[in-house]
């Protein structure tokens, strides 16, 4: 009798089986007040160079922020910034404005977008497929504006690595030749194993599988990895194993023993800028 009850309960519950990725990648509202009012004076941008645009990913609208001149896209270096797991681009406005002024004011055009379900982008991010589709729609737009492979720099922060990894490993419409990984998450399995202490595969919770080790071993281009040893959100040792799988044309790591996940705030703008600019100009 009890056996039958258990089986029945199992079947009933499995019909409503939940996939963690839909939750893990759950965004939130976005205001998109991209103005100097919310910036430190040193990061002020020319507000005429702040542009919002949209592309379409499958049936969903992807909201994009571009800081720079459109004309730069066909002639100059563009940094595509893949933000971390915050509700929307709002949380990274200060960072993108800062990057726009790295080296000199508006030295580089900087683009950021909200994954579907984040901010005002419609739909729901579900897995690597939806992230790849969103990325492709943005890169396709950049390609249409004249961007080519030797002028694209992809900069991924934290969970932005979930998009950047497969893209770098051959999944980008414009092949990536320069990649910056800042405090990246390393694999879906290790997230599972770090939180359970057991050798459980990620398929126990989700269909979503990402493995940055594999991606980096298949990425032939240049890589800069920045990480704090005290990072408890994206553990340093896991990221190290993944990033050091890279066998491409150039590898540089900037490791900070006393820093955590909020790397820029903890190492300071001066050091952050120095490392980035050296890599960009290399």
């Amino acid at each position: 009798m009890m056996k039958n009850i258990l089986i029945l309960a199992s079947l009933l519950l499995l019909t409503s089986c939940l996939d963690i990725s839909a939750v893990m990648l759950y965004g939130g509202p976005g205001e998109y007040n991209f103005t100097n009012a919310s910036l430190d004076s040193i990061d002020h941008v020319d507000e005429s160079k702040i542009h919002r645009l949209q592309t379409f990913s499958d049936q969903d609208t992807i909201e994009i922020l571009y800081v720079g001149d459109y004309s730069q896209i066909e002639s100059d270096t563009i940094i595509l910034y893949l933000h971390g797991n915050v509700p929307s681009m709002d949380g990274y406005w200060t960072t993108v404005a800062h990057i726009a002024n790295i080296g000199e004011q508006h030295r580089y055009g900087v683009m950021m977008y909200d994954y579907r379900g984040y901010g005002k982008s419609t739909g729901t991010s579900t897995d690597e497929t939806s992230l790849a589709s969103d990325y492709e729609s943005v890169v396709s737009w950049l390609q249409d504006q004249g961007l080519d492979r030797d002028r694209l720099i992809v900069f991924a922060n934290s969970i932005g690595s979930l998009t950047a990894g497969p893209a770098a490993a051959g999944g980008s419409l414009i092949p990536i030749e320069k990649l910056i990984m800042e405090t990246p998450q390393s694999s879906s399995a290790i997230i599972m194993q770090n939180s359970t202490g057991l050798s459980l595969p990620s398929s126990m919770l989700t269909n979503f599988e990402f493995d940055l080790s594999v991606d980096m071993s298949n990425y032939p281009g240049e890589l800069l990895w920045m990480h704090g040893v005290l990072d408890a959100t994206a553990p340093f040792n896991d990221a190290a194993s993944a990033m050091r799988s890279h066998e491409g044309s150039y590898f540089e790591e900037a490791i900070y023993p006393s820093a955590g996940h909020a790397l820029r705030w903890e190492i300071g703008n001066e050091e952050w800028d120095r490392v980035l600019l050296n890599f960009i100009l290399k």
Partner: peptide, 27 residues
């Protein structure tokens, strides 16, 4: 603003509670 970014990263995500439930369900 650095604090705002940091707080955003750590605490303002809607997924917070449910995500934690899911991840640690198999402890």
């Amino acid at each position: 603003y650095s604090m705002i970014d940091f707080v955003n990263e750590l605490f303002t995500m809607k997924l917070r509670i449910l995500f934690l439930v899911l991840l640690t369900a198999l402890l």
